[in-house]
Amino acid sequence: MCVEPALLDEVEHALEPNESLASFVETAVRHEIQQRQAQAGWLQRGSAATRHNSAAAGIPAEVVIARLEAKLDAARQRK
């Protein structure tokens, strides 16, 4: 794979003093791997939570709304 000259120029200008292109690329790759691992973990936890919640007997939305409306009515009466 060839790197576009403009990108290579940008990278070379972004290098810190005494930083090599190889160390810059290694740091970038490690960071990307960490980001992808974190994202994969987040997606796994979200999928597990979705499966758990769909399998569990939850409270119907109508019941939750009715309870919230009752609390709101009680708060209005206290004022």
Rank of each mutant, 00 (worst) to 15 (best):
L21E: 00
V11H: 04
R78Y: 00
L43T: 06
A6L: 06
L68F: 07
L21V: 11
A70N: 10
L21A: 01
A14H: 01
Q35V: 05
G46V: 02
V64F: 05
I33D: 00
L72T: 12
A70L: 08
A48E: 05
A66R: 14
A28P: 00
A28H: 02
R78W: 04
R67W: 05
H52F: 04
R30C: 03
A14G: 01
N18M: 05
A38N: 09
L21G: 01
R45N: 07
H31Y: 04
H13I: 01
W42C: 09
E10L: 14
A38W: 12
R76C: 06
L72K: 09
G41C: 09
A48C: 03
G58P: 02
I65F: 11
V64Q: 08
W42G: 04
R76Q: 14
R51Q: 12
A61C: 06
E26D: 10
L15Q: 04
L7R: 04
A48L: 08
V64G: 03
W42V: 04
V64S: 14
A70E: 14
I65E: 05
R36N: 07
D73E: 11
D9S: 11
A38S: 12
C2F: 03
L7G: 00
V25P: 00
R51A: 12
C2L: 12
D9E: 05
S20H: 07
A22C: 06
E32R: 13
E16R: 15
E32G: 08
Q44F: 10
A40H: 08
Q37L: 14
V64M: 13
A61K: 13
Q77W: 00
V63S: 09
L7D: 03
Q37I: 11
A38K: 13
V63A: 04
A38G: 06
A75W: 09
A55G: 11
A14M: 04
E26T: 13
S47E: 07
G41D: 11
A40I: 03
E16D: 05
A14Q: 09
Q44R: 13
H52G: 03
G46F: 03
A74R: 12
F24L: 05
S47Q: 14
V25A: 13
N53G: 03
R51F: 08
V63T: 14
L8Q: 12
E10G: 00
R67P: 01
E4C: 11
R51H: 10
L72C: 13
V29P: 00
A61M: 10
E69N: 15
H31S: 10
G41N: 14
A40G: 12
A48R: 10
P60E: 09
A6Q: 09
S54E: 12
T27P: 00
A75G: 06
H52W: 08
W42A: 15
A55W: 01
S54V: 02
V64Y: 07
V25W: 01
A38L: 11
K79Q: 11
A61I: 13
Q44I: 09
L15N: 03
A38I: 02
C2K: 13
E12G: 00
A75D: 07
T50D: 10
R78P: 04
M1V: 07
A38Y: 02
V25K: 06
D9V: 03
I33G: 00
N53Q: 12
Q44T: 09
S20W: 01
G58Y: 00
I33C: 06
Q44K: 15
L43W: 06
Q37P: 01
A6V: 08
